[in-house]
Design a protein around this nucleic acid. Structure first.
Lengths: 140, 140
DNA sequence: AGCGTTAATGCAAAAGCTTCTCATCTATTG
DNA sequence: CAATAGATGAGAAGCTTTTGCATTAACGCT
């Protein structure tokens, strides 16, 4: 039950938090902006303010429930943290985001950080390119 | 002569452009924000507006003279394009930015993009961590 | 169930970074 | 040196995100 996730984060189980978490779990696109979430809530006739969306997403991030990414768009996107780390590949035309994991890259990064005397807290690798999907020209 | 770089970019050789390019070439830190550039210009008694700084940096980026990066700060930083691609490792405490190149990671990325049917236009890898510099606690 | 405490919410205002508007000024070319 | 296309500065405006504050709701205790 996701209510427990919210409680575990030290947060009260409120309607906005439950709705937003549900939404993240059920949404088509796994990478959504605060504005996206807000619009989905409006569409679902939920009376939740944009400020609350931002606050809740930030709290979820601090609690490790979601991850926040900055692609080259000028806004942040959030995705449910499903436990397994992965990197992203973003289509510059249609905006689709896909995920990948590469162990070689992971180990090389660790090695580089070691050599340079850095203790990694996190890392973000994003590849931008043009995808080959037939309908790439239109936004999804 | 850097005037020629500006001319080659199809831009008129004006005082703001020359000053900003000089500044990027001579600055201590190679990664600077628009605000940084603006402050440096003020310090050098140059009467150049912030809007112009943004415009010029954008034009330089389009011309390939500088590269723009988005670290996890909410603002963009620019650096002179010295031709050789590299990735970044950023200290989350003191803000220092270092560069690295790893051929293994580069080739793996290409392979991943190929497999996923993406034609890479660019990519951005940033490692965040804590560096071991003695004076890491203080901002540089 | 009801109450008190403390946190959470909605709204509007504000804050940060970046872009735009527009009147004025300047580099370039002949 | 004049004409012209482009560049500039200042301020306004645009976007995303955060904050202040009065109101409301959740939780623990009885």
């Amino acid at each position: 039950m996701e209510d427990q996730d919210i409680r575990n984060a030290g947060l009260k189980v409120t309607a906005p938090r439950v709705k937003i978490l549900e939404l993240l779990e059920n949404s088509e696109q796994q990478h959504v902006s605060a504005e996206d979430v807000y619009k989905m809530l409006l569409a679902a006739n939920e009376d939740i303010g944009l400020a609350t969306v931002y606050r809740v997403l930030t709290q979820f991030e601090e609690a490790g429930l979601v991850e926040k990414h900055h692609f080259e768009d000028g806004y942040s996107v959030y995705e449910l943290n499903k436990g397994k780390h992965h990197d992203h590949i973003v289509c510059v035309t249609c905006g689709r985001v896909k995920e990948f994991v590469d162990e070689t890259i992971e180990t090389r990064q660790q090695k580089i950080a070691d050599e340079m005397g850095f203790q990694i807290s996190e890392h973000e690798l994003v590849i931008y390119g043009k995808c080959v999907d037939d309908d790439c020209d239109l936004k999804p």
